[in-house]
Write a protein that binds this DNA or RNA. Sequence first.
DNA 1: TCAAAAGTTGTTATATAATAACGTTTCGAT
DNA 2: ATCGAAACGTTATTATATAACAACTTTTGA
Lengths: 165, 165
Amino acid sequence: MSKNISPPAAPCPHHGHQACIEQALATAVELCNRGGLRLTPIRKRVLELVWQSHQPLGAYDILAQLSAEDGRPAAPPTVYRALDFLLDNGLIHRLASLNAFIGCDRPHQAHQGHFLICRLCKVARELPHDAIDEAVEQTAAELGFLVEQQVVEVSGVCAPCRGHA
Amino acid sequence: MSKNISPPAAPCPHHGHQACIEQALATAVELCNRGGLRLTPIRKRVLELVWQSHQPLGAYDILAQLSAEDGRPAAPPTVYRALDFLLDNGLIHRLASLNAFIGCDRPHQAHQGHFLICRLCKVARELPHDAIDEAVEQTAAELGFLVEQQVVEVSGVCAPCRGHA
DNA sequence: TCAAAAGTTGTTATATAATAACGTTTCGAT
DNA sequence: ATCGAAACGTTATTATATAACAACTTTTGA
Ligand SMILES: [Zn+2]
Ligand SMILES: [Zn+2]
Ligand SMILES: [Zn+2]
Ligand SMILES: [Zn+2]
């Protein structure tokens, strides 16, 4: 069951999506260089595949693409280990409600993953605002709860799919 | 791998957890009667198992308990069909970040599931309608996004586990 | 320089979560 | 009593993720 049935995202006005990919890879290279992290060919290729669109991608979709381009079939740990590295270093996020992964466009800055996910075009947009973050922290604080991780995944219909611009 | 390794929740001061279970079942019976819904023995039993603690429970944990008490092994669809019924009618919630299910204590009122999940005692506490919901709606509205479903699952350490009685 | 240590990848097998498909039974309304 | 829909039993399969261990590579520190 491929996750890419729907039409590709209508993303990236003004520059086209290739620019997103290149920007993300360049940022990743720089971040890994600074941090002494090894962005190996497999890891870089997986990151590139995750960034192929703004639609979250399943691990087995990545696996299938790796297998296709390598000729030989890749095994799940190959992909999951690369995904773990990218997750650990903030280069991608995992969307629990979709069992899927998506690139992060501000990996330098530590943050929680907050997403709007369109049910129609499947595009997931990461929210930069901290209004939600503050509401979570405040609600938790009132109950004496120490927040360590926030999973905020909002599903619905995005503005373009609603015809709003 | 059982999900109930950790000590049972320290729940339900003043009345003990049995009261939670009975209350939840009574509410479910009443809600189903009003709505012409069939709370069959299997569905009721699954709801009761979900309510056995305030810790989210996996479908296969439920399955194992059903199998044990029936003598014969139950099959996954038995549990998943019951869970689907309970989900559809707001009697339980699914926690995407845990692949687990938990009883809802206000099934009459339509609402999104917002949870604080303690990493130590595993107790998941549902948050009443509040600032988080508003922050999500407002942030989405600014982007022209129509919200249909909210997944808000906050992990961390609860007040009792922090010693904040 | 070279060997030990740590990190990365290959490979096989398995664990865990959820659904498909289809026949049978039960329920509720005529 | 009969019919149709809903619920359930059963078998098989799909989807997602991890365990375990061997082989290879890079880094580190004599
Ligand atoms: Zn991000
Ligand atoms: Zn859309
Ligand atoms: Zn609820
Ligand atoms: Zn706790």
